[in-house]
């Protein structure tokens, strides 16, 4: 008797509703359990924690560059010469894939210090240009040999397959000659 009632006479029945509800609960349950599995692959707490690097700039001479490691990637730090800065500023209005004025590439009042991730925005190779004997590309900055991307003296992409300028990480001047990479700069007050 109960059976006949559940099957109903065409149209929706209680049983259809229970199927639907059961199916939906199963799907929600599976999705809820999938999330921790998927999210466990994202950077773990210790990976995220080990994420500042302090650098002493006092030993770097004008025209020189050093590479430090931050979060597993190289950070390029360059003490730019007057010429290099002038060349970058002059090109501010030139057409480029990812337009940015030179002023947006360094911190206020410190145009000589260029701090960027040394990771080509194309497919992640390390561009050449840190040592004085390196090939620096058509714009005198950096050149990525993997697929031929040219960056200028402000680390902006000018030619080749890379779509973006070399990224500028968060960094903060602790003193005039020390920076911490991975920390936001203090607001204008400093």
């Amino acid at each position: 008797m109960a059976e006949a009632e559940a099957h109903g006479h065409g149209g929706e029945t209680r049983r259809d509703f229970i199927y639907l509800l059961g199916g939906a609960m199963g799907a929600i349950g599976a999705a809820a359990f999938a999330w921790p599995l998927i999210d466990s692959l994202s950077p773990a707490a210790d990976t995220k924690a080990a994420s500042t690097t302090e650098v002493d700039l006092s030993a770097i001479k004008e025209g020189q560059a050093v590479t430090v490691k931050w979060r597993g990637s190289p950070v390029f730090i360059r003490y730019r010469t007057k010429d290099e800065i002038a060349r970058a500023v002059k090109d501010d209005k030139a057409s480029m894939p990812d337009p940015q004025p030179d002023a947006a590439r360094h911190q206020d009042g410190k145009p000589q210090w260029l701090v960027m991730l040394g990771v080509c925005t194309h497919l992640g190779c390390i561009p050449l240009g840190q040592s004085s004997s390196d090939k620096k590309g058509d714009f005198g900055g950096w050149f990525c040999p993997c697929h031929g991307s040219h960056y200028d003296t402000a680390g902006r992409i000018r030619k080749g397959p890379a779509p973006k300028n070399l990224p500028v990480p968060d960094y903060r001047f602790v003193t005039d000659t020390r920076i911490v990479v991975g920390e936001k700069p203090k607001k204008a007050a400093a």
Partner: peptide
């Protein structure tokens, strides 16, 4: 980042 489980291949 998710594929790497970090900020670089590691």
């Amino acid at each position: 980042t998710w594929l790497w489980g970090g900020f670089a291949v590691d």
